[in-house]
């Protein structure tokens, strides 16, 4: 009785249900509410880059100011890496299964898998999208990832990460199941003085079918489908 009252209260307040309840079904198509071009911490501060991180970031900002974005490999149709893939202004689909949760992105059809009941490998092969494991804490889906290639960007502005990036994502559905709240933790001792968090929100896109999007296809530009 008290639990249902609490649920009703959180629903009325529109707040996410924190770490209570059972696993939820996140399946469906989602779009980010606001795609950030430059990440900040939850408090709105600049990310805590260390000296090495500041040097790389300053180089990229200077290049961008000259109109040189060659540091951004997405211009060559390469994957944006993580967490940036979760921040682009394009829908993605979640397929939630017992063994894994799949994220299938509209952006160049990129797939992501996070496996339940597994550990992160000790010595992972560096990949654009890393290796991801998933677990539930109450109603919160937690995804941890490691094994990233250095060279992808954390955000459009060129915020750097290294090969030791450890990403933690915490996803919660709102009580009505229409919004997805995510909290990301960036831990990367080679680029930042300490781990830091940011948030992103997503809305459900009922009935939206993700179209075939092929980055390498220059003809796609003429069809109006972004790439």
């Amino acid at each position: 009785m008290r639990a249902s009252t609490l649920l009703l209260l959180t629903w009325l307040l529109g707040a996410p249900v924190f770490a209570v309840g059972a696993p939820q079904d996140f399946s469906g198509v989602w779009s980010i509410v606001r795609s950030p071009s430059r990440l900040t911490t939850i408090a709105g501060a600049a990310p805590p880059l260390n000296a090495a991180g500041r040097a790389i970031y300053a180089q990229r900002r200077a290049a961008a100011a000259r109109g040189d974005r060659s540091f951004d490999e997405t211009s060559k149709c390469l994957p944006p890496g993580l967490p940036r893939l979760m921040l682009v202004n394009q829908p993605f689909e979640i397929l939630q299964r017992d063994k894994a949760v799949y994220f299938i992105h509209q952006l160049n059809r990129l797939p992501r898998r996070a496996y339940f009941g597994e550990q992160l490998p000790d010595d992972p092969d560096p990949l654009y999208l890393g290796f991801s494991i998933a677990r539930w804490e109450g109603a919160t889906l937690i995804i941890e990832s490691a094994g990233f290639r250095a060279g992808t960007l954390l955000d459009d502005s060129g915020l750097p990460h290294s090969d030791v990036l450890h990403l933690t994502e915490r996803y919660q559905l709102d009580a009505a199941g229409r919004a997805l709240h995510a909290r990301f933790t960036i831990a990367d001792a080679k680029m930042f003085t300490h781990p830091w968090d940011f948030q992103a929100d997503y809305v459900r896109r009922p009935g939206y079918e993700i179209p075939e999007q092929v980055c390498s296809d220059k003809q796609t530009a003429a069809t109006g489908i972004p790439y």
Partner: peptide, 28 residues
């Protein structure tokens, strides 16, 4: 959903709908 390792191709096979009346031709 067919997730092909080769070049991360994705095929979606819809079980509960017909082909749309108007289709923009695509690779798959």
């Amino acid at each position: 959903t067919f997730l092909h390792e080769v070049a991360h191709n994705v095929r979606r096979i819809w079980l509960n709908r017909a082909h749309p009346a108007v289709l923009r031709p695509t690779f798959l």
